[in-house]
């Protein structure tokens, strides 16, 4: 069968979501952000909620998320996305509000905001990209950096006595009464991408049901700052990140 006979509209099975813009993402080749943006856009498209969804972008690599997902966006100060999301959701209870944050944004400078938004049980969706490093500023230690991991500010590897321990903030979040769904996912292969997408969809559905805060961590790679190829970074993540940050639902009620 000739390729030309296959590539026809009636045979289309999968392509770019209509909720993604045509702007080329600034992310490095192989960055997990792109995959998460894609599945977030697909969930918004499939639920038909493009006109009802307000996104909050962080400070960090995902600051420009607003260029890529075609919804209304607020660009928050570093760590404050949950505060913006709180007010937005309270003032528009029928909209879907999603805060998209990295590990430095959510688990370091914005710890108070995320803890209290989750504890109040704000009916928002939080997507937490944990790649264990500061991407945009050039690879410094993040709160989630693993022990021994080399970064620009831990050039000889993270040491507990000097730098403290990697923070499992998702486990802390799961302890809070206000959260209804807390899960840890990844997007390095087709199966994990599908699972992560299901988790994000569930988070959005929870938000409509006013069950409380849904929190989806995506264990991710930052191959540039990890100084690996994208494929090698995915493997390194599976071997080193997953044992410390195990995948799966931590809370679902």
């Amino acid at each position: 069968m000739d390729i030309k006979d296959i590539i026809k509209p009636e045979n289309f099975v999968y392509g770019k979501s209509k909720v993604l813009t045509d702007t080329v993402m600034h992310y490095c080749p192989g960055c997990s952000h792109g995959v998460v943006h894609k599945i977030l856009a697909e969930v918004i498209e499939e639920m038909g909620i493009q006109d009802k969804t307000i996104g909050i972008s962080p400070v960090g690599c995902a600051v420009f998320a607003y260029k890529y997902i075609d919804i209304d966006w607020q660009q928050a100060a570093h760590g404050r996305a949950p505060a913006l999301a709180t007010a937005t959701k309270r003032l528009y209870p029928d909209k879907y509000v999603v805060a998209y944050q990295g590990d430095g944004d959510l688990a370091s400078i914005g710890t108070a905001e995320i803890m209290h938004a989750c504890n109040r049980g704000e009916n928002i969706v939080v997507i937490f990209i944990n790649n264990a490093i500061y991407g945009m500023t050039g690879g410094q230690m993040a709160p989630t950096t693993l022990l021994g991991m080399k970064t620009a500010t831990t050039p000889y590897g993270r040491r507990a006595d000097l730098n403290g321990y990697p923070l499992k903030i998702t486990e802390l979040i799961a302890q809070l009464e206000g959260t209804c769904y807390v899960t840890r996912q990844s997007v390095q292969n087709p199966g994990s991408v599908r699972k992560a997408k299901k988790a994000i969809r569930k988070a959005f559905e929870n938000s409509a049901l006013k069950k409380g805060t849904s929190f989806v961590e995506i264990v991710s790679t930052c191959n540039s700052n990890w100084k690996m190829t994208p494929v090698k970074a995915n493997k390194w993540m599976e071997e080193n990140m997953f044992p410390f940050y195990p995948l799966g639902d931590i809370k679902d009620r």
């Binding site: 099975v13 192989g30 792109g34 995959v35 894609k38 991408v193």
Partner: peptide, 15 residues
């Protein structure tokens, strides 16, 4: 391939 593509550059057709 399209599922894992971070830049959504792949469109898939199937018969």
């Amino acid at each position: 391939c399209a599922t894992v593509c971070p830049d959504s550059v792949i469109t898939v057709y199937r018969v």
